[in-house]
Every structure is written in structure tokens, then in C-alpha cells.
Design a protein around this nucleic acid. Structure first.
Length: 829
RNA sequence: GCGGAUGUGGCGGAACUGGCAGACGCGUUAGACUUAGGAUCUAAUGGAGAAAUCCGUGGGGGUUCAACUCCCUCCAUCCGCACCA
């Protein structure tokens, strides 16, 4: 623990924070779009005091913002609050404050922290998604999607706690049990609102290629999430029935090997197909059991494949073979058609199932190399490529070619048709919850479902509601099936906008991801009460130049934002179809090998560290800890290194300003001068080439170390002054307060952030003498100092005259000598 | 199982197109200044060895004058998806 202060950070920091506000450093004139730079950090959920793990995000954004300002760009760096959401409401149910009160309180705390850290935001553009002047426009977005047919209502399975008698969000279901009362969660079909994101699946997938400056990792995650696959859909007629069962396959080349067919337990035709079965009871029992299992087994690893014969058969249309129809737990109703043609010889799952229930296995593809034929006895299915056999007129074709041929043939004969499927599902946006934006829909007894007219927006969230209603019902209250809003009569009862008759409001609210799917548009005109965003301004300022946030949003938030952006683009509201040009995902801060979180009790509060070392130290350490895109282990003790470094820089500057520095001149370019320019180059490149703040900072540390050394050894005051000036400039994105102070003490009047980022001089970096390592057979044996421009011939001569080299080349003989100019000499003996 | 990463001192981590491995920081050791120091400064710090030198980037193999870097193979850890037909 530091007993004496390295430097008076507690005086410096508040002073400069106030100064930046006074000179409106972070409040750009957005009408000036010539040199615009939009730097955006993901807006936080106001959960309470921030810890150092959260801090990384904002510190990264601030460093970039300040750097770009010094590059002469007009930087917009806004902040807001993703303020709707479950935790605030849950706290209210437990008997705490009203969600609005606790949210506002948390915002206050966090805002104070961000200001205290010196993070530069344009606070005049602050937004909060829970305020009606914001969610009015979230509702507007909903209406636009509704008008376009992209918002619709349908029955969907939701998590239902029978004890609490309420719907639960997925996050509230812990191991298939209710997080509050621990009773088993059931599946219940309820009317839910959806956004038709699947209509955009193909474009969302295709346009990933436009996201050049996104992390590969995020792009592949989105790709997998969308999960496009192409194949063929084929109708299989059921024997003794009019029903045809459609099934989808990506391996149409194996269709002659289909030996049975399987339905998902939830398949809509199942009931009808088994109604005359002698085993009806048994089959129904099986369906009921597996349906329950399917929801819960999502988290568990392997579930034994189980199935039951329906006593019905279907016809394989390619060869008119009668094959048995089964129902099994391994077929998913949500994907494809919920029915699968099983090819046990060439699909591992089907193979396992066939083995278990003694179903036939028919080989239709032979590996090209080797003549081993995958037989029924083989322990697994052959899923690789090969040549078709037992496939009628397609025999001896390569299976890849056969896929196309068979698909063509099927389309010609109308047996089947090519089809594309996605894993992506429509976005369920309904929440039976209070703390969210109300869905602007009215149900009229006469006119049916009527959207709230735009002029009537916002549909205000009533402030006075009964939170105990939901929680209380668990203890013998009335039956409740939806959110507290449903019990607020003043809210529910309304007039129909069309006929003015009696009507009821929709009581579901929107998923908070809807709020966050468009907020970056609002920052350009946050106080506009006529429209959600200013078309001219957003077209000038977006796409966002740099978006910064955690990987945990790689799929949901980033995919939803892209989707909404594309919808708004299609509707002509905006002129760009991707919202974020560059994305940076920072790693987590780890403590005691776990993600920092309140529940784990391993949070490091920055407050105490800041009191002890100052904000600049904590900021600097956070950036120095490691590559920002990777996870990093927090080490309280190591913070001191950053503190010592800042102190060293401070003391060096003191020496200059108090004229204590030595003054002695040497001839030529002083090595420190070289170091100064090398450091400018290194720091600039590190920032430009992808957030390498950790190595940029270590380069500045080297510069300060060298400056101290040069000062000891004697160096002209001018050079030393140059070194300190450069240190202040290079350090300003990372330790802004200290840099400002140094800058002022060096005699400058204006803020350092009004100064231009320094450039470097190549001529100064160029050395007159260079040290070249000499290798013999690739091993370092000696070094020589030679003039920088030495010719290869001369260099060779010098090398061979070197004492150490002579010793190694006892006979003077060598096979080859490899010279890499200015870098290295290797002698092969 | 599929996909994506990552593997370097006691620790966090450097190393641009293959070219002095371990920058920078933490920790440790010794010393200086000190009543004292957990402040500051100086020096040392991958391992073995008195030294010359040798060995060292998860393991094994390869390409090369030269490999943390390229190729093959195996192992370990982390993350994402997970019966997607």
C-alpha cells in the first residue's frame, strides 16, 4: 500500500473533469458531418454500482474517443440506459422500490461513477429506454413492423409456473424449475407476439460478408445461429390414408436407403394417424412423456433415443417401397417439417435408432477408396462421400453429383422440390411483464385487433400498479395469467380508435431487446418529439464507425439490431442497411478464475482503488492488463505498477519544469530523440491496428524509462522536454487527467485534447549505426556494429574479420553466407 | 458430436512479412537512502553450469541456413451451438 502519494491525483482529476465540461469537449456539433466519427459503447443496463469488469468497456471507448478527437475528427460519443427489464421488476415484487424509482436511482449512481472516471460522453444526448419520450418511438417501431406484416400474434409455448400461476422468462427458469418457488415449470400454449425475423434470414446471412471489420467469431456465431441449409422436401403418402407426410432432407442422395420414417412427438398429424391403432393408449402415453422430456432435456447431455411404432406405413416415392412410420424423441418439431426419412446406413442417429429397434439398414453409398462396405454389423453409419449403389438409375454416380440429379428428377416428376431451411426462429417479443414498453395494440369487440394510431403514442405505462399481484397469487391469491398491467383497469379499459366502442389494451410489453435494437439512431436527435430520428442526421452519421461491447451480445442484440435496421432501410426511413461498420468485442475481466459478479462475491469495486491511486491509474491498468479482446485476470497488486509509472512520469516532468534537469549536449541525433519518434510510431500503429492499447502503453513506459535514464546520464534540456511533451500527448487517451496537468505545466494554455496527435519523423528514427546479430548455422554467436548504409559486400568483409566469427570458422571455410540487410547475418558452415 | 479460439518464466503478457524468445508490468532477491519503510532509487531475475556452453515457446514429426511463427499429427483448456435430418 502506498503511504505517500506518487502525485496529487486527487487535486488534478476533478479539476480537469470540470474543465472538459466547461469547454464542451465531448459535445460535437452534429450538423458538421465532414469529419464525423461515431464511437458507440453498448448502453448499460442500470443494475447498480459498476465494477472494474464493467469499466473496461467504457474505458476502451473513451480512449478511442480521445484519440480520434486529437486526430481532428468530430467525434460523437453518446451514452444512455437500457433501462427496462426484469431485475428491477423482480426487486419490486420482493417488496422493494417501484422499478422506476430503483432504475432512476441506479442511473444516478452509475452516472456519477462514469463522470468520476473521466469518461467523455455527450451528456446532453443521454437517453433512457424507460422514459416515454423514448419508448414512444419503440412503439412506433412496432407499429411500422405491424403495418408491414412483420409483427404478428400466434400461439406459442411458454414457461409456466403452476405454483406462482405466471409466465416465466427463460432466464427465470433454472434447471426446469421456477427460480422463485422451485416448482417444476410446465409448457403452456399462449398467444404471443412475434417479429418475423425469418423473412430476413437470408439477407442477414448474406450481408455478414459486408461486415468486414467485425470479429470472425461473432460472424460465425451469427451464421450458425441463422443456420441455413439447403435440401429437398419430399411428400411421403401414408398407406391407407389421404395424408401425405412432408419430410426435408439435405441428403437426398441417400433416399433409396430410407428404411423407415420418423415423426416428432409434437407432429400435428400424429393424433390422426394413430387414432385407429390398437396400441393407441400406449402411443399417446409415449407422446405425452417425450413432449415433457423434450423441453427439459435441452440442458442435459445425451438423451437415449426412444421411439414407438405407429402401426402405419408410408410409401417411399422413389421406389414405392412400403416403410414403417415411427414416432421418436430425436426428431424436433421446430425444424424442417418435423418428419424425417431415416437412412440408418448413412446417418449416425438413424443408425443407432435402427439398431435399437431392429429396423433394416440399407447401404446406398460406397466409399470410393477401399472396398469395405459399411454393413449392418459396422459400429457406425457411413456419412462420407462415395458412389451410389442400390439406387436404381442413379447407381454408380458420385453422391455429390447424384444429389443434383435426383433433385432435378424429383422436381420434374413432382415427387419433391428443393427447399431451404433455417434454424432461426421468429423473434418472440411478448413479455407478460410490467417493466417494458407496452405493445401499442387495442382489442375492440367489433373491429378486432386495432393498432394504436401514431398520433396517440405513447401508450403510457401506468405508474401505479400492484406488484404483489403476481407474487401474492402464489400464496392463495386469484388466478393470474399475465402481467400486473392486466390488473390495472385504467390501463386495460379504453376506447377503440376506429369505432370508439368498448375496447381493451394489449397488456404484454416488449422484450427489452426491441428497445436496444434502434437506440443508436436516437442519439442524433434525442429530444425530437416529432419523429424517432432525424433521417438526414442518421444518414450522415451512420453506420456507427466503431461499436464496442461484450461478446455476450454477439447473437441476440447484434442480430436484432441488424434486422430492425434492415426493416427501416426497406421502409425508406434510413439510407444504410447495416448499422455497425466496425465492431469490437472486449473480453471479460476475471477474478479468482470466475467472471466478476455480485452473486459470486468476487467483484472489485473501483471506488477504493480510485481513492488510493486515482482514476488514471485504474484506467491505465485496465488497458494495460492484456489484449482487450481477450479475457484478463484482475490483480489488485499489479495496479501499483501503473501507479508507479504515472508517478515516474510526473516526477520527470517536475524536474523539467523546475529546471533541475541536467543540461549536456551530445553530437548527432540523441538516442532519446530516436526513441521519442519510435514511440509515436508504435503507439499510433498499435491504436490503429486494432485496439492494442496494452502494447501501446508499454511502449510509453519504455519511453519514460529511457527518459529517466537519459536524464541521469545527461541530456540536453530540449530533448528531455520533447520527451516529456510526447509522453503527455501519447498518454492522453489512457491517463487523460495526468496528461492535461503535464501539458499545462509545460506551459500550454489550451487543453491537450485541442492539440493534434503527434506525427513522427522517419529521418529521426533512421539510425546511423546499427547492431547486426551474426548467426552461425542459425545460432547467435556474435554481434557487430556497422554504419547504417553499409553495402552487403562490405558487411560480409567486416563479418569475416570479426574475432568471434574467426574463432568459429577455424579453417576459414563456410558453405554459404546469408545477409538480410540491416537485420542479420547467418553463416552456414 | 460440430464450429471457433487458445497453449510462451513464479504471474499478466511481448515478439511486424520465419531472423537476437521472454519487451512492458507484477512478484522475488540483493543493495542505496533511511529511526524505520509496505515510499523512492540502483542492480539481478527462463532453467542447468564456476565458466565456456548447453537446454528451453503443450507433446511428437516435418520443411528451412534459420521455426513461438509454416505443414502434418496428437494432447489439454476455454467459448459458442448442440439429436437441425
Amino acid at each position: 500500500m502506498a503511504e505517500t502519494k506518487q502525485y496529487p491525483f486527487d487535486e488534478i482529476e476533478p479539476k480537469w473533469q470540470k474543465h472538459w465540461q466547461d469547454i464542451t469537449l465531448f459535445n460535437p456539433d452534429v450538423s458538421d458531418t465532414k469529419n464525423k466519427y461515431y464511437c458507440l459503447v453498448m448502453f448499460p443496463y442500470p443494475s447498480g454500482a459498476l465494477h472494474v469488469g464493467h469499466g473496461r468497456n467504457y474505458i476502451l471507448g473513451d480512449a478511442l474517443t480521445r484519440y480520434k478527437i486529437m486526430q481532428g475528427l468530430n467525434v460523437l460519443s453518446p451514452i444512455g440506459w437500457d433501462a427496462f427489464g426484469l431485475p428491477a421488476e423482480n426487486a419490486a415484487i420482493k417488496g422493494g422500490l417501484h422499478p422506476r424509482a430503483s432504475t432512476e436511482n441506479n442511473i444516478k449512481i452509475m452516472k456519477k461513477q462514469l463522470l468520476g472516471w473521466g469518461i467523455g460522453y455527450d451528456w446532453t444526448r443521454e437517453i433512457a429506454s424507460c422514459n416515454s419520450d423514448y419508448y414512444k418511438w419503440t412503439q412506433w417501431v412496432f407499429l411500422k413492423l405491424f403495418e408491414k406484416g412483420l409483427a404478428y400474434k400466434k400461439k406459442a409455448a411458454v414457461n409456466w409456473c403452476p405454483s406462482c400461476k405466471t409466465v416465466l422468462a427463460n432466464e427465470q427458469v433454472i434447471g426446469a424449475c421456477c427460480e422463485r418457488c422451485d416448482s417444476k415449470v410446465e409448457e403452456k400454449d399462449l398467444e404471443q407476439w412475434f417479429f418475423k425475423i425469418t423473412d430476413y434470414a437470408d439477407r442477414l446471412l448474406k450481408d455478414i460478408s459486408k461486415l468486414e471489420h467485425w470479429p470472425e467469431r461473432v460472424k460465425t456465431m451469427q451464421q450458425n445461429w441463422i443456420g441455413k441449409s439447403t435440401g429437398v422436401q419430399i411428400d411421403f403418402p401414408v398407406v391407407d390414408s389421404d395424408i401425405k407426410l412432408a419430410c426435408y432432407t439435405t441428403r437426398v442422395d441417400t433416399i433409396f436407403g430410407a428404411t423407415y420414417m420418423v415423426l416428432a412427438p409434437e407432429h400435428p398429424a400424429a393424433e390422426e394417424l394413430i387414432k385407429n391403432s390398437s396400441d393407441k393408449k400406449q402411443i399417446q402415453e409415449f407422446i405425452k412423456r417425450t413432449r415433457q422430456q423434450s423441453k427439459q432435456s435441452r440442458s442435459s447431455l445425451d438423451v437415449e433415443k426412444e421411439g414407438i411404432f405407429t402401426q402405419r406405413y408410408v410409401i417411399n416415392p422413389v421406389n414405392n417401397k412400403k416403410i414403417p412410420l415411427w414416432i421418436a424423441n430425436y426428431v424436433l418439431v421446430e425444424y424442417g417439417t418435423g418428419a424425417v426419412m431415416a437412412v440408418p446406413a448413412h446417418d449416425q442417429r438413424d443408425f443407432e435408432f435402427a439398431k435399437k429397434y431392429n429396423l433394416p439398414v440399407e447401404v446406398v453409398i460406397q466409399p470410393i477408396t477401399g472396398n469395405q462396405q459399411p454393413a449392418i454389423e459396422s459400429p457406425q453409419a457411413y456419412e462420407g462421400d462415395g458412389v451410389l449403389v442400390n439406387s436404381d438409375k442413379f447407381n454408380s454416380l458420385n453422391n455429390r453429383a447424384a444429389m443434383e440429379k435426383i433433385a432435378d428428377w424429383m422436381e420434374n416428376t413432382k415427387i419433391g422440390k428443393r427447399a431451404t431451411h433455417y434454424k432461426l426462429r421468429d423473434w418472440l417479443i411478448s413479455r407478460q411483464r410490467y417493466w417494458g414498453a407496452p405493445i401499442p395494440i387495442i382489442y375492440c369487440e367489433k373491429c378486432g385487433m386495432v393498432p394504436v394510431p401514431e398520433k396517440d403514442l405513447p401508450v403510457l405505462l401506468p405508474e401505479k400498479v400492484e406488484f404483489s399481484a403476481v407474487g401474492g397469487s402464489a400464496f392463495g391469491g386469484k388466478l393470474i395469467t399475465s402481467s400486473p398491467l392486466a390488473h390495472c383497469q385504467e390501463f386495460v379499459n379504453t376506447k377503440c380508435p376506429k369505432c370508439s366502442g368498448k375496447a381493451r389494451r394489449e397488456t404484454d410489453t416488449m422484450d427489452t431487446f426491441v428497445d436496444s435494437s434502434w437506440y443508436f439512431l436516437r442519439y442524433l436527435s434525442p429530444h425530437d418529439d416529432k419523429k424517432p430520428f432525424d433521417k438526414k442526421l442518421v444518414n450522415a452519421w451512420l453506420p456507427v464507425d466503431q461499436y464496442i461491447g461484450g461478446v455476450e451480445h454477439a447473437i441476440l442484440h447484434l442480430l436484432y439490431s441488424r434486422f430492425i435496421n434492415k426493416v427501416l432501410f426497406d421502409l425508406g426511413f434510413i439510407g444504410f442497411d447495416e448499422p455497425f461498420a466496425r465492431l469490437f468485442t472486449q473480453g471479460m475481466i476475471i477474478k479468482d478464475r470466475a467472471k466478476m459478479s455480485k452473486s459470486k462475491g468476487n467483484v472489485v469495486s473501483p471506488d477504493q482503488l480510485i481513492a488510493q491511486y486515482g482514476v488514471d491509474t485504474v484506467r491505465l491498468y485496465t488497458l494495460f492488463i492484456g489484449p482487450p479482446e481477450r479475457d484478463a485476470e484482475w490483480n489488485d497488486r499489479a495496479v501499483e505498477g501503473s501507479y508507479r509509472f504515472l508517478g515516474r512520469a510526473w516526477r520527470l516532468a517536475e524536474q523539467i519544469t523546475s529546471h533541475k534537469a541536467q543540461g549536456r549536449k551530445i553530437q548527432g541525433i540523441h538516442p532519446l530523440m530516436r526513441k521519442i519518434h519510435q514511440t509515436i510510431k508504435k503507439v499510433t500503429e498499435d491504436i490503429e491496428n486494432g485496439f492494442k492499447f496494452n502494447t501501446a502503453i508499454s511502449a510509453i513506459m519504455e519511453l519514460v524509462n529511457d527518459s529517466c535514464k537519459a536524464n541521469e546520464e545527461g541530456v540536453s534540456r530540449d530533448v528531455l522536454r520533447e520527451a516529456v511533451t510526447t509522453t503527455a500527448l501519447l498518454l492522453s487517451p489512457f491517463a487523460p487527467h495526468l496528461s492535461e496537468e503535464l501539458w499545462q505545466r509545460l506551459g500550454n494554455k489550451e487543453s491537450i485534447f485541442r492539440q493534434k496527435w503527434p506525427g513522427f519523423d522517419k529521418a529521426v528514427i533512421q539510425e546511423d549505426e546499427i547492431t547486426i546479430p551474426i548467426q552461425i548455422n542459425g545460432k547467435l554467436r556474435s554481434k557487430i556494429i556497422v554504419p547504417a548504409g553499409i553495402s552487403e559486400g562490405n558487411l560480409k568483409k567486416v563479418v569475416l574479420e570479426d574475432e568471434v566469427v574467426k574463432k568459429w570458422l577455424v579453417s576459414g571455410a563456410y558453405k554459404n553466407i546469408i545477409i538480410i540487410p540491416n537485420r542479420l547475418v547467418n553463416i552456414v558452415v
